[in-house]
Structures are given as C-alpha cells and as structure tokens.
Amino acid sequence: MTTTAVPAAGAYLPQGTVYGTLLNFRSEFDAWAPKMNEAPYKAPPNAPILYVKPVNTWSTSGAAIPVPASAPQVEVGATIAMVIGDKPNTVAGYVLMNDVSLPHASFFRPPVKFKCLDGFLGIGNEVVDAAKAGDPSAFTLDVRVNGEVRQSSRFSGLVRNAQQLLADVSSFMTLQPGDVLMLGCDITADGARPLVKVGDRVEIRAPGFAPLVNTFVAEAA
C-alpha cells in the first residue's frame, strides 16, 4: 500500500528530488574495496553513486515506519543531507535523514525493492541554515535504538566532503532548488548498519539539529 507523509504543522518536507549517496564514508568504501575489482564493475567507482528515494518513502519525524512481514529486521541509514537553495547547485541548509533499507548483499547498485518501500526515509522536521550549521566535515551524529547508542558517526570520515560531493555531482547533473542530496551513511565496526525490528524506537541526534525520531511498526495487511 502506498503512503504519503503528512507533516506536523511547520514540519519540513522536500520540495524536489531526494538523492542518496553510496560508499561515501571511508569505512564503508574500504569494507567493500576488495570486491570492487570483481565483475560486473571490475574497478572502483570514479564518480558518486546515487539513487533516488521517491515521495512514497518519506516519513516525517514522529511518524511510524512500516516494516514488511517478510523482513524481520531493517537497516538504519543515519545521515545528514544537503538541501539545495534557490539557485541550482547551491546549499541552503542541512537536514537529518534516516535512509531505511531492507538488508541486502551489495551496496553497489541496490534494487529499488530494498530501498524504496513505503515510509523508508525518515526526514527531520527542520532544515538548519547552512551558515548556522557550520562546516559539514565537523558534523557528528548518534543513532539510539530504544535509548541505547548503537552507532556514532563523524563526517570527517567522508570520501568526498560535502563541497567535493556537490561539485562532483554537479559536474554531470544539475541539482535543482528544493532537491536534497544525502552525504552518505556510515557502517558500524562489524561492517554493517544498525538493525531494528517492529516495536523499536530510533532516535538520530546531531549537535545543532532537532532529533529525528521514528518508531517501527508492522505493515498493515
């Protein structure tokens, strides 16, 4: 069943296309490096790897995210994203996001069915102005599941920092006003992402940002 996010009064929802970015944390890139020379690619990527999170995936902070009956657990993809300003390829601000996915075997080109299920993108309720947010390389965030810290990420560990990512993406496509570009999702020490199940409450916190909170519920029949 397709859902559309209904924001709380004054809550932010994207006005353009939301793009995710793969393999942009050094830890994740290095974990997958041994497989990068295997078929079908046979070489490390030389440009950002992007994918789209369409409108059916959007869930505002405070919303319940449905978990399919076929998936006992789903992955949390905590990140911070750039919101494009009034002029193409410029940054107006930053927003917290939870890029939820079904667990899958490859991050190189994940099928839509793993990442684009209804409600599978938690979105922070406010955009922090770029000038107020400061240097994105200094961003940090924590993922808390039922109050327990399960992941801590530092955006100083990006393969392409925010400025370089924007420049590289802009070299082959135009990011339009209202578009959103995620900086990427980190992995934990075991090479995975935090897993959650029905009944769990996930809170993503970053200094200067209002927390992004979502609960996970069983998908309606």
Rank of each mutant, 00 (worst) to 15 (best):
Y12P: 07
G77E: 05
F108K: 05
N37P: 09
T57G: 01
R26D: 09
K115V: 06
P66Q: 02
V127G: 01
G20N: 01
K113S: 15
L22H: 14
F29C: 06
S106I: 08
P45D: 13
D86Q: 12
M82N: 00
Q73I: 14
A64T: 10
N56P: 04
P7H: 07
P110C: 04
A9H: 14
D30W: 15
A31D: 12
N89H: 04
F120Y: 12
S101P: 09
Q73V: 14
V76E: 00
P110G: 06
S101C: 12
K42M: 10
F29K: 06
P40E: 10
Y12D: 10
A11Q: 15
L23V: 05
T21Q: 05
I49E: 08
V83P: 00
P103S: 11
K35V: 14
P111G: 07
F114T: 14
T90N: 06
V76F: 03
A5V: 14
V55I: 11
V83N: 05
A8K: 15
A64V: 01
N56D: 04
N24V: 04
E75I: 02
N37F: 14
G124L: 06
A63N: 04
P7V: 06
P45K: 10
V127W: 00
G119H: 01
K42E: 12
N98K: 00
V74P: 00
V55P: 03
P14N: 05
W58A: 00
A11T: 08
K115H: 03
R26K: 15
S137Q: 12
W58Q: 05
A9R: 15
Y19W: 14
M36W: 13
F29D: 06
T3G: 15
P136S: 08
E75A: 07
I84F: 02
V91C: 05
P14E: 06
A138E: 13
Q15I: 11
P54Y: 04
A9W: 10
M97N: 07
L13S: 09
G134N: 08
A33W: 11
A133K: 04
F107I: 11
I80N: 00
H104G: 08
V55Q: 10
V55N: 05
P72V: 03
Q73G: 04
V83T: 01
I123A: 03
W32V: 14
P68S: 09
